[in-house]
């Protein structure tokens, strides 16, 4: 069976999808939760989360225990656009 590698963009898509659809509570998803669900290493996830927060796609909320991440309205728009263009690229047999 051929191994398919995820692109950087698809990892971002997975992280945003997790924060939108699978957050354990309203405050958002923790880093540990995202590592497990999005299947990304801590080092890589930290960099991506930093970028997503700076771009306004994720909202970061800090509690006394740990940082939690929740998808923003901008993030939802991005995710919708990403899915549309992913379908388009899929039609060409390509991955974005």
């Amino acid at each position: 069976m051929a191994v398919t590698y995820r692109t950087h963009m698809s990892i971002i898509g997975d992280i945003l999808t997790t924060t939108r659809d699978e957050s354990p509570d309203e405050t958002g998803a923790s880093v540990t939760y995202l590592i497990r669900k999005a299947n990304v290493s801590y080092g890589r996830l930290s960099k991506i989360l930093e970028t997503l927060v700076s771009q306004g796609l994720l909202e970061q909320s800090s509690s006394d225990r740990a940082c939690k991440y929740r998808i923003s309205d901008r993030g939802r728009e991005f995710l919708q656009a990403y899915r549309g263009f992913r379908e388009f690229a899929d039609s060409f047999g390509l991955r974005i």
């Binding site: 963009m9 971002i12 970028t51 771009q55 796609l57 901008r74 656009a81 379908e87 388009f88 039609s91």
Partner: peptide
Amino acid sequence: FVPISQVPMRGGMRIGGNV
């Protein structure tokens, strides 16, 4: 063109490309 017709286009869909 066929794949384009399947992409839901909405107005104002502009998000920074530096993700």
